[in-house]
Write a protein that binds this DNA or RNA. Structure first.
Length: 159
DNA sequence: GCCAACGTTGGC
DNA sequence: GCCAACGTTGGC
């Protein structure tokens, strides 16, 4: 696969922490994706993502879970500062500044969309392959195939 | 609040 | 390196 080919991701955010509206209100409509403490999700951010990749911004752990907007990977990987902050719930005392364990990406809003609810996602056969819908999936960042991406955009009536 | 799924931890 | 215990996730 050519390095230039665009990739797609679904990234879960708890709206209590950072909603699509919080993203829209952030400086530059960009936020650092803090708090990921799962190695597989970290590896996606550190190794696999490329600037400009498409992101489905997903609201989780809330009354109305679902896709709430489109975003993009806005920069290179860098250390998540919360891992070194003893006051942060994401503090990791085992991580050292000279060898940071947790890397993140900045994520920038592309556009807010209607809410494509989890219920509707589950009802759509063309989305049945999505990793986020698989039983037992707990990953907060999952790859999305080009076909899934196009199907979501069609349901959201955006291109 | 429940609970299934599953990642992480730590004793051995 | 195994694996049971434990903690977390996240929809319901």
């Amino acid at each position: 696969m050519p390095q230039e080919q665009q990739q797609y991701w679904l990234m879960k955010s708890e709206p209590d922490e950072c909603s699509i509206d919080d993203l829209a209100a952030a400086p530059g409509q960009t936020v650092p994706w803090t708090g990921v403490r799962n190695y597989q999700a970290r590896n996606f951010m550190r190794d696999a993502m490329r600037i400009g990749d498409g992101v489905l911004f997903y609201h989780s752990s809330c009354p109305q879970p679902g896709i709430a907007g489109l975003a993009e990977v806005a920069g290179p990987p860098y250390p998540d500062p919360t891992q070194f902050d003893p006051a942060s719930p994401y503090h990791d005392p085992k991580s050292r500044p000279e060898a940071p364990r947790w890397l993140l990406r900045d994520v920038k809003l592309v556009r807010k969309t209607r809410l494509l609810s989890l219920k509707e996602m589950r009802a759509r056969p063309e989305l049945a392959t999505m990793r986020v819908l698989q039983p037992g999936n707990r990953l907060s960042i999952t790859p999305v195939t080009p076909e899934e991406w196009r199907a979501v955009l069609a349901l959201l009536e955006v291109s």
